Amino acid sequence: MERRDFLRAAVIGSTVATLGFSVTRESIAYPAKTGPSPYGALQAADANGIELPAGFASRVIARSTQQVAGTGFTWHSAPDGGACFADGTGWIYVSNAEMGTGAGGVSAIRFDANATITGAYSILSGTTRNCSGGPTPWNTWVSCEETDFGYNFETDPWGAKAPVRRDAMGRFKHEAVACDPDRKVIYQTEDTTDGCFYRFVPTIWGDLSSGTLQVLVESGTTLSWVTVPDPDGSSTPTRDQVAGAKIFNGGEGAYYRNGICYFTTKGDNRVWAYDAAANQLHVAYDDNLTSNPPLTGVDNITGAAVGDLYVAEDGGNMEICIITPDDVIAPFLRVTGQSASELCGVAFNPAGNRLYFSSQRGTSGSSSGGITYEVAGPFRTAL
């Protein structure tokens, strides 16, 4: 059931009386409203042209078509979705390449405990328009092709295992995935104006080689998951196979936490919250429902352990915005001098004290001008 206001009057303590289930602070006051950032106002742009809160600093870690410092590896063009994986005392950041036919793929950068770059390499190549994706609980990266009849590819962030195409997850204009280990399903978004919201139910959790593709269906105020008859979609697109499938205007990023899958739609500048436990759908942010909305052109989304969400803009004024558990939305950073680009690939390192993202076309406005950044600073660990 879609609601723009999550029964504010019914909130008693930490429960919603009319629903009879526990909810966290992050789910009781949708939609988010414009307000002050917990990190304060943005300061003047730094040497990299990034406006940040006081105490934060940025650095460039890679530029498209140039070698990653100290590695000899050339960074891919058009960097897009990304994620971090723990690697001993360090970590690995993976990044998609949203390039045309056969020129897409995924690259990775390895860091030690001091955030020093120790290596860079390819983990997938020869694919098409790898837009976003998502990490799995078993430490793989699912990279999604944003093309009609596109595939998902499961990749190894360490580059030791060959990537595997996961046909059972369906063929459509994939954007992002988010794993729900509680229900053992994987949510998927579709980047078309008449796209759907899917979930893949693996036959065996941890193995994406087989399973069932389902689509979210809306009938009145009731939501249900219905099996897609032909996940291959060759004769009929997956979004057109099930009557009553809920339509979303340009599905983008997805992120799962504490029973809720947050996902974004760029056509209407919304952040959605699918409450899996209650099987309810809420609008967590809508630029039409707040004054002076800071977030437009919604795209990739990630979260911090403290409960904050971070949403990148494709367009707008090149910001990454924060949505707090108190449902306040504000700019966290702004990239200047790159109005012909988009921000993407937002991801925290395992410790949560470094944020990675890319400007897909950088200052040049070309896919060969992409820039990947790191932001370090006093990210909050408590509310």
Rank of each mutant, 00 (worst) to 15 (best):
T127M: 00
D182R: 12
P231R: 05
G119S: 05
T127D: 04
I117K: 13
G105H: 00
W205C: 14
S143Q: 02
E146F: 01
W138T: 12
I117A: 12
M169N: 14
E145G: 03
Q188S: 13
S143Y: 05
N114A: 14
T147W: 07
D232R: 06
T155H: 00
W158D: 02
T127R: 06
T127Q: 07
L124R: 01
R166P: 03
L124E: 04
G119I: 06
I109F: 13
A168Q: 03
D156S: 04
C144M: 15
P202D: 13
T189N: 01
I109N: 00
T192L: 05
D232P: 04
T227D: 13
R166N: 03
S235P: 03
W225M: 03
G159H: 06
P181M: 05
Q188K: 10
V185N: 04
V106R: 00
A120D: 05
E145H: 00
S122E: 05
P237N: 05
G134H: 00
T236D: 08
D112W: 02
G104P: 06
A162L: 09
G133V: 01
P137C: 15
E218Y: 08
G195C: 03
E98Q: 06
V185S: 08
V142N: 02
E190G: 12
V177M: 14
W225I: 11
G220Y: 08
S209C: 12
T118I: 04
P163H: 02
R129S: 08
D191N: 11
A120C: 14
T212S: 00
D194I: 09
G211I: 10
P231K: 10
V185F: 07
D148P: 01
W138M: 03
G105A: 01
F149S: 14
T118L: 01
M169D: 10
G206Y: 13
F200N: 05
A115S: 10
W158R: 13
T118W: 14
F200M: 09
F153W: 13
D167T: 13
A120K: 03
A120L: 01
K184M: 08
F153Q: 00
V226S: 08
S224N: 11
D194Y: 01
G105L: 05
D194E: 10
R110V: 01
E175H: 03
T118G: 08
T116W: 06
D112K: 08
F200W: 04
N130E: 12
N139K: 15
D207P: 09
T140F: 09
E145Y: 06
D232C: 02
L124K: 00
F153R: 04
A115L: 07
